[in-house]
Amino acid sequence: MTEKFDQKDFGDDAALIKGMLAGDSTAFEIAVALYHPKMVMIAKAIIGEAFAEEIAQDAWISAIGSLADFGGRSSLYTWLVQITANAAKTRLRREKRQVSLDENWQQLDTDDRFNHKDHWREQVSQWDIDTPEAIIANHQLKEIIQQTFAQLPPQQQAVLTMYDLEGESMQEICNILNISASNARVLLHRARSAIQQKIHQYQENS
């Protein structure tokens, strides 16, 4: 059975931690629903698909083991992400695996939106639906954004989530993912640009 909650129904970190320490099953479900997908996403961005789920589950067990000592110096989310990122980096060293770079790395060199003079090939029109509120209120556009987001390569997805959705600083993102600032900025732009292009296609064709 699948249940849907709204994030605001869940109360704050302190209530959630108190619930988990008391062994309340709903608190565990809420915490997992809120944070597990993000932890898997961070693990994927660091070590790739194969070990991500296992690393996130191990990170939960280690986090819950020291939950009573978690002083609330950071948010629960930040703390869980750090535990996950550290576990993923340790595993990466152990596996001695090279994480393949973002598969769209060469995208800009083959970008066919520009001509040989590096000008736009086609006119860039203004969008008919051109405010964020109107875009999110449009069911199909919202769906397009969510689908495009879900299909982004893991590193792009992680950087976009942390920067644009969670409001993390670039420095923090680079520390968590172990990437350079210039790499992080390129990943962020690629992710935003992919979503922009899908919104643009929809607006041009409708």
Partner: peptide, 13 residues
């Protein structure tokens, strides 16, 4: 638009 997503995004269990 991306930044407005979390406010309207339901959490699924």
């Amino acid at each position: 638009s991306i930044r407005q997503l979390p406010a309207t995004h339901a959490v699924i269990v």
